[in-house]
Design a protein around this nucleic acid. Structure first.
Lengths: 338, 338
DNA sequence: GTTAACGGTGCAACCGGTTGTACAACCGCG
DNA sequence: CGCGGTTGTACAACCGGTTGCACCGTTAAC
């Protein structure tokens, strides 16, 4: 009574139906120039007739490729999902790969167990390439990938670039982003700047601050730099601290748009108007930026494009391209908070 | 200057090193009873020696399995990620599969293009099984899967069960969940109940309401049932509507914990105390439930366990098990809002 | 001493494609 | 007519494993 499981038609059946050999059938379907147009037509008709689709397993073995790319993430799934940064980046990868025949596989590597499983899959050559979304120095998995010679793309700058000649790298220029934000403040004539940044040990934070300083110099004194978390609550709290100090300031550079949202709330509560009294610039061009009142001027990190780029580099490396380092450019998004 | 890409050792090399044939080597590594203990030891040693790991492609072809399971999602990635429901469910699947040698692949099917790509992968037999996270009636992909005879698990109840004899199903008993929530209200002596639910066309909402009604009868009049979105803002707004009506009520059943959070805020603003004046019960046991003041009594849907179950059923079906239907049970989580 | 039973191993086929090479048929040319 | 060159096809090997079956040597039973 159960559905008879039709076993899938093989190339041999197509060949038989078209009255040619298996090899000719294969070449015809792959559009080889050595096959006559007439034969191709016949084979294609036969293939359509029996509903032939080449089997992934057979093909993978023959061509030496699985057509699968692993996306390696260090964060646990829940964190990964809640962070819109990742979400957009992953979408970029997925989007780009969906134009090819490649399939992305999200491979977690937060626990030791997961890392072992990942390693095993690498050794089995389950993937043609790996995109490491959050590479860190000294990762044993990177060492394995290097030894195995698996094409790998690192998304994020590793200080010292220990693998520059083996792995490709894609990252956004955070210093440039800081540059843009600070320049906007300067152009607006703001002279007394406060910075509310993310965690101090975050490399992006360090680079952005360097960008701020290069432009603002003494207009951003050390005492005005606050490190905190990435959320609006953190921004709110930090701004209250600043206000309590009763120092003069006319601009706030924020490490994320969520921080900026909290900062604006705190400013408003203190009776300060944005942007009349104080200019605020965010970072990320998160969805929240457009919902702020006033709409937030911010720096956009091209996450989706970074995903596209990473995917394309991976595909190129599979085809044998040399490792490359690509820097993506930040962009100032002008809105009303400046 | 580039790292010499060591080509991976094959079974043939192991066999040669151990002084046996390929077939013996294979059987030894797979612990076949037909091979003597001594030979096994020798082969294992040789395998370790040359760092042998069986190639995934070769193995896949030989055993007729890719050891990959597709997790089919209809929602776009961003929505998928922002919904904690999915996140936990997916974690459950991933967790369970990581105990096996199987690999989950998230396969989006929101756009037509994506559906076509998915279909293609199905036809190529890229996956040994499919777990459909949000199946809907009349999905053409389900039709394809049925025709191809791919083992499939549906997560969610399809009205009319058009594929009951072909596909397995796992779902949580929403009616039972409604039952539990309503019973808690009743036990507490609440007699005039209001329900703030999710969208009216959502099957889970329908089932939960049925559960409420079975217990409460006239204590939950039609006029007191409000359909809205899933967020706290929706709950807040809905509660304001109720309050504006100036009807008497002493209990609120909510369609989600986020709704409940909004409801509690609105009640407090109106000077009503929870649970002294009004009891509130949520749904989902979302993280927010513990952060509410007072902590929210809610109904827990065993999402993670559902994921485990779906994964296990998929694995069983790959091994040839018949399709099954599994109902997961809801659970009342007692906290302080009742 | 022949034979049956049995444990251990190897040969070869197989999974389902791709691809190097040989070969046959045909062409025009000297 | 024979030659070289082109075109289209088929044979067979190959990718890297697994597995049915034949075979071998040993031992026990008759």
């Amino acid at each position: 009574m159960t559905q008879p499981v039709r076993t899938a038609p093989t190339l041999a059946e197509v060949a038989a139906a078209a009255g040619v050999s298996r090899s000719t059938a294969s070449r015809a379907l792959n559009d080889s120039p050595r096959i006559s147009e007439e034969t191709k037509k016949r084979v294609r008709a036969a293939a359509k007739e029996v509903n032939f689709v080449p089997n992934a397993r057979g093909r993978a073995l023959a061509v030496g490729r699985t057509e699968i790319i692993a996306v390696l993430v260090t964060e646990p799934l829940s964190e990964l999902f809640s962070d819109p940064t990742y979400s957009e980046f992953l979408s970029g990868i997925t989007e780009e790969l969906s134009e090819s025949s490649y399939l992305p596989v999200i491979l977690q590597a937060s626990s030791t167990h997961e890392r072992n499983r990942a390693r095993e899959h690498f050794e089995r050559r389950s993937f043609d390439a790996v995109i490491d979304v959050s590479p860190y120095k000294g990762s044993e998995l990177l060492e394995v990938l290097r030894e195995l010679g698996v094409p790998t793309v690192l998304c994020g700058q590793l200080e010292g670039h220990p693998y520059r000649d083996v792995f490709s790298t894609v990252y956004s220029d955070d210093e440039e982003g800081g540059h843009f934000a600070a320049l906007a403040m300067k152009d607006r004539g703001r002279k007394d700047i406060v910075a509310v940044l993310g965690p101090q040990d975050n490399p992006a934070v360090v680079d952005r601050l360097r960008g701020y300083r290069a432009v603002l110099g003494e207009d951003l004194p050390d005492a005005n730099v606050i490190y905190t978390g990435w959320n609006s609550g953190d921004g709110y709290q930090a701004m209250h601290q600043i206000l309590a100090r009763e120092i003069a300031f006319d601009g706030v550079l924020c490490g994320s748009d969520r921080i900026a949202a909290g900062v604006i709330t705190a400013l408003n509560e203190a009776g300060l108007s944005v942007p009349a009294d104080v200019s605020v610039v965010g970072f990320d061009d998160h969805e929240i930026a457009t919902r702020c009142v006033p709409a937030l001027t911010t720096v956009r990190q091209p996450l989706r494009e970074e995903g596209h780029m990473a995917a394309n580099i991976a595909l190129d490396m599979i085809k044998g391209a040399e490792p490359t380092t690509t820097v993506m450019h930040m962009q100032l998004v002008q809105r009303d908070s400046l």
